[in-house]
Amino acid sequence: MLGPFHRGGRPKPMGEINVVPFIDVMLVLLVIFMITAPMLTQGVQVDLPQVTSEPIDNNEERDPIVISVDRDGQYYISLSGDETAVSLDEVSQRVIILLQRQPGTPVMVRGDRHVPYGQVVTLMSTLQAAGVSNVGLISEPPPGDS
């Protein structure tokens, strides 16, 4: 016997899409990207000196130009994550071009701790000749120092 609310026949197909599974997938992807994004900002392997210092207040909205010197003395120039191996002469030329396009862009130097001091000073002198007035030096905090 059928109840008073039974209309008979097959149930009508539902005209709505259930979006709950899509929301679950999106939240899982969001968490995955939040965890992996900081890991993707790797560049040239540079063993930075470890010193206690105050971080630079970077109120600039622009990404800095980062010039790295690796253990072998090879120079790399990086802007917005794009890293290119260059010679010392090319460093000067590229920095001049980048500063003409975006004046006031901060310039940072990452020097491996095993690179001779003279090579870093030569790089800084080259940057000064290219029109860079302030150069920041990148270091790592010592272990256990927060």
Score class of each variant (00 low, 15 high):
53 S>T: 08
56 I>Y: 11
68 S>R: 13
73 G>I: 03
55 P>A: 00
72 D>T: 12
60 E>G: 14
57 D>I: 07
79 L>P: 02
84 T>V: 13
74 Q>I: 09
60 E>I: 11
52 T>P: 09
71 R>N: 03
81 G>N: 00
78 S>P: 07
65 I>R: 01
61 E>M: 09
59 N>A: 12
62 R>E: 06
70 D>R: 05
66 V>A: 01
80 S>F: 10
71 R>W: 02
71 R>A: 13
62 R>C: 03
66 V>R: 00
68 S>Y: 04
77 I>H: 04
77 I>R: 00
73 G>K: 01
70 D>A: 07
58 N>R: 14
54 E>F: 07
80 S>P: 02
61 E>K: 08
57 D>T: 12
66 V>Y: 00
56 I>R: 09
80 S>M: 08
77 I>L: 13
74 Q>E: 03
51 V>S: 14
76 Y>F: 12
61 E>S: 11
66 V>N: 00
66 V>P: 03
73 G>C: 00
62 R>M: 13
50 Q>I: 07
53 S>F: 10
68 S>I: 05
74 Q>R: 15
77 I>E: 06
59 N>L: 11
50 Q>C: 15
53 S>L: 12
69 V>Q: 08
71 R>I: 04
69 V>F: 08
70 D>Y: 01
64 P>K: 02
54 E>L: 09
83 E>K: 08
75 Y>H: 09
71 R>E: 05
62 R>W: 02
70 D>H: 01
67 I>T: 06
70 D>P: 12
84 T>C: 01
62 R>L: 14
56 I>T: 12
82 D>H: 10
71 R>H: 10
52 T>K: 15
61 E>F: 08
78 S>Y: 05
81 G>V: 02
59 N>E: 04
62 R>Q: 04
78 S>E: 11
75 Y>P: 01
61 E>P: 12
82 D>P: 08
77 I>S: 11
77 I>K: 04
60 E>P: 11
81 G>L: 06
50 Q>A: 07
68 S>L: 02
66 V>W: 01
53 S>M: 10
78 S>D: 03
55 P>E: 05
76 Y>E: 10
61 E>G: 15
56 I>L: 13
73 G>N: 09
67 I>P: 08
72 D>V: 11
65 I>M: 00
82 D>L: 14
56 I>F: 14
84 T>R: 06
74 Q>C: 15
72 D>P: 03
67 I>H: 04
70 D>L: 00
54 E>C: 10
53 S>G: 14
79 L>R: 01
